[in-house]
Design a protein around this nucleic acid. Structure first.
Lengths: 330, 330
DNA sequence: GTTGCCAAAATACAAATGTATTATACTGAA
DNA sequence: TTCAGTATAATACATTTGTATTTTGGCAAC
């Protein structure tokens, strides 16, 4: 069912527990008595129901401060759709809110015959969980970037697989590493029929879902070895963050660094041809990267948090060099 | 905001708490710290959010046993729409589930320009809370029955008022008591222009929402004095329950009892002219009444619980005289 | 049969939540 | 200013929930 976890017990029991717990309002003890299950199991199932999107909550109170920010961002950056959620201190919590909001927006946008390009990141995973399951006709999901060689707990393949499953769509994978050993091997792979075709298909996508990261270890991508050891040099070369595997400077242009010549992913500029391209990212430490991406107009839809929204709208108020890694200063 | 309770604190704080608690997953303590509110208040607000429908949960796992019963009920009684929810031991819990299900069905049915007739009952109140707030154009809500003189905590007026507010519709009230002092006074009131017009408008409704009750004190209507003291005689006259203020026998026909000649409400038979007429009622002790209503074809849509559904589908298996009042047997 | 292994249940305890009670601050009238 | 009266916050405690640990009951290999 979900991405990581295995599903406890059978669907029907889970559904029944959902009703009794979330709708009728029984306690877990009452449910365990009624259904003849150990309370511990009921407890774990209840926990899973929310986590895997089997039970979804809908907040029917608009947050005016967020709605207002959404409007201002639309005009300031010429965006089609913007969703602003409250800010959180914790990354995991922030991702849940961003994912939820993204899911809500996306739910209203998906239709038969569409092609959805998808990047990578924990925020994207969160948003897929919030999507309603469907059986879209003639729809497909395309990965916008290569995979990670060292099996991170969530690889790019899993994101696209899970999205495809949720939508009942076909899935196309970029069967190549996100970073090739060399620029030459990248060229070779890109001429490979398979990779080639998938990348071409990605360009035709109707919707793209992409996240971004900064250069701290909070961002998952920079945690992988290939990137991690390059961080000092990347910073020296003016990189402030990553978007679709590409490292970019404060102006939104890719920096001149070897990794950018080894990356196998859709080039950010190609997103501009996609009708609905989403940047789903939040957390104040990513504000600078987000600003760069919006400034360059790579995307036309945004899901972010309140604090970032305010920062984006404030006059070119450079984010202070907050919790940057104390590495390369040579 | 809601029907009974007064709303704690301001909307915006409530919305923020909803996000942090239900989406981000903060504890109430963390929220109280973050927002600088006493934890007890956060706790009470969280409790209210669910209760008043500001936060709504959506279960995305179908219960096959219920789905199956829905289909069988459709064919067995020639119904347009049926929703079956799990059964509960407690009436309040059962109402929450019935209300939730009714709200979901209704949400997909409501449209501009519609006229919605509404009866009375705690189950109906529960279902209104689940409805999405809207601003329907040219829609109206009409009460299908007179009001209670002795202020019950939830009068018929409040049900229609709240539904109208939720839908952004106009509201028409039957400004008369549900039971007149005499058949004569009833006739006089029915010729009164106001009452008259509203009753006429009710006949034109596109959707009707009605509940029903048995003759025990579990049913709210029988708890009011006028009815309560008549119960022995009603049973003697063959009544098994109440529907739109009218007392009916096991065959679904109104019984010959004075109350039925004093009632100010839409006659059950008039429902047949309404495109979508809902019976929203559950609990095994109401099965007999529900069966009578369905048998007579007064309604074409049903929301009930699993146990009742099974009873309805089982061969004319008279419900055993379970918890009937030990009154009139003379 | 015995043994070892695994999975599921029972148990026990810690954290979070719900609720009542007491304390405090605020308001308006004398 | 004082004094109710009220409303809000602090506190304390009972219940419910979350999680780790122990126990039990198969089941397969020996």
């Amino acid at each position: 069912m979900s991405i990581g976890e295995t599903t406890l017990y059978n669907e029907q029991t889970r559904a029944r527990i959902a009703w009794y717990y979330y709708v009728a309002g029984l306690t877990q003890q009452e449910i365990s008595d009624k259904l003849g299950l150990p309370r511990a199991r009921v407890n774990r199932i209840v926990g899973q129901l929310r986590a895997d999107g089997s039970v979804v909550v809908d907040i029917r109170l608009p947050l005016v401060s967020c709605v207002e920010l959404e409007e201002r961002l639309k005009t300031a950056f010429g965006l089609k759709l913007v969703s602003v959620v409250p800010s959180a201190d914790d990354d995991e919590q922030q991702r849940r809110m961003l994912g939820d909001a993204a899911g809500v927006v996306l739910d209203s946008l998906l239709a038969d015959g569409q092609c959805i390009g998808v990047g990578w990141g924990r925020t994207l995973i969160a948003s897929i969980k919030r999507l309603r399951e469907r059986e879209l006709k003639d729809a497909c999901v395309v990965s916008l970037m290569g995979g990670l060689t060292k099996g991170s707990e969530t690889n790019t393949f899993e994101v696209s697989t899970e999205l495809a499953r949720t939508l009942g769509a076909d899935c196309y994978y970029v069967t190549a590493p996100i970073y090739c050993p060399s620029a030459e091997s990248r060229e070779i792979l890109l001429t490979h029929s398979g990779v080639n075709e998938v990348m071409a298909r990605a360009k035709q996508a109707d919707i793209a879902l992409v996240s971004c990261g900064d250069l701290t270890s909070r961002t998952k991508l920079t945690a992988i070895n290939t990137v991690n050891e390059q961080l000092p040099q990347l910073e020296k070369d003016g990189a402030i963050g990553e978007f679709l595997g590409t490292f970019m400077g404060a102006d939104g242009d890719p920096v001149n660094h070897p990794l950018n010549r080894k990356v196998i992913a859709m080039p950010p500029a190609d997103l501009k041809a996609i009708p609905h391209s989403f940047l789903i990212s939040g957390g104040l430490y990513k504000a600078e990267v987000i600003r760069a991406i919006l400034h360059k107009g790579y995307v036309n839809c945004l899901v972010t948090d309140e604090a970032v929204a305010r920062r984006l709208l404030s006059p070119e108020n450079r984010p202070k060099t907050s919790n940057r890694k104390a590495a390369a200063t040579a």
